[in-house]
Design a protein around this nucleic acid. Structure first.
Lengths: 125, 125
DNA sequence: CCGTATCCAAATCGATACTG
DNA sequence: CAGTATCGATTTGGATACGG
């Protein structure tokens, strides 16, 4: 079960709830794939989100669907066809993701260099 | 060990690397506390970030220090005194966090309602 | 005060196999 | 195709106790 900011003091940080929803494992690659390549079937996502297993993909898709970020459409054909697409609500994350990408472009190098320095310092006193 | 976008295709999503750095467990409450209440000592953080154990707090602080988001200052006194503060780089996340908070304010309710609907639908066919 | 060490519980993941 | 079931491996976290 997930904690929530109002009941759990450990999350007395206004953004923790969002983080749980938007940045839990595998969600960003999935949302990004849906956002970038549009509506997709299960196998397409499976191929695109490299390394994910069908089990985990299902779990994450269900969670995203439950949170209203993704819409699942089932076509009762033979063979069955299911399509996933980003919802309106999911699309509203786009500027946020863009912002994140900007920060990455500008600062990921700094993080890299900070790590090198830190590691180079060894375990000094 | 952490994967990285250039070596690991599963992260062929431009924002995954940032997520690993900025949104891994406990980091947002810690950064938020440092950002909001300023420079703090270990115990203050321990109290503020409710529920965290010293072990985990140390782990996360080391990681943040290594990534250059937090600065640790050791004062060799008796008793020893250590202070943590957000770095320049860490501060550069502020607009991003603000953006996140905005999204939360505007849309967290939608997520809540989506969940209720989803759960209300039960496991229907 | 500021951590570290140790041990154990729990959550998550991954691999594999199988169904409607 | 679109998943589910099962199981074991791995990672992560918490509790506790102790040290410089």
């Amino acid at each position: 079960m997930k904690a929530d900011a109002t009941t759990d003091p450990e999350l007395a940080c206004p953004i923790s709830p969002v983080v749980d929803i938007v940045f839990s494992r595998w969600t960003t690659p999935i949302l990004w794939s849906l956002h970038t390549f549009g509506r997709q079937r299960f196998v397409e996502l499976e191929r695109r989100v490299t390394g994910i297993t069908p089990k985990v993909l299902t779990q994450r898709l269900r969670q995203l669907e439950r949170d209203g970020l993704v819409v699942r459409t089932y076509h009762p054909e033979v063979p069955p066809r299911v399509e996933y697409e980003i919802s309106e609500l999911g699309r509203s994350l786009a500027p946020l993701f863009a912002h994140l990408t900007e920060w990455a472009t500008a600062n990921l190098g700094h993080v890299e260099r900070a790590r090198e320095e830190y590691d180079a310092a060894g375990s000094p006193r």
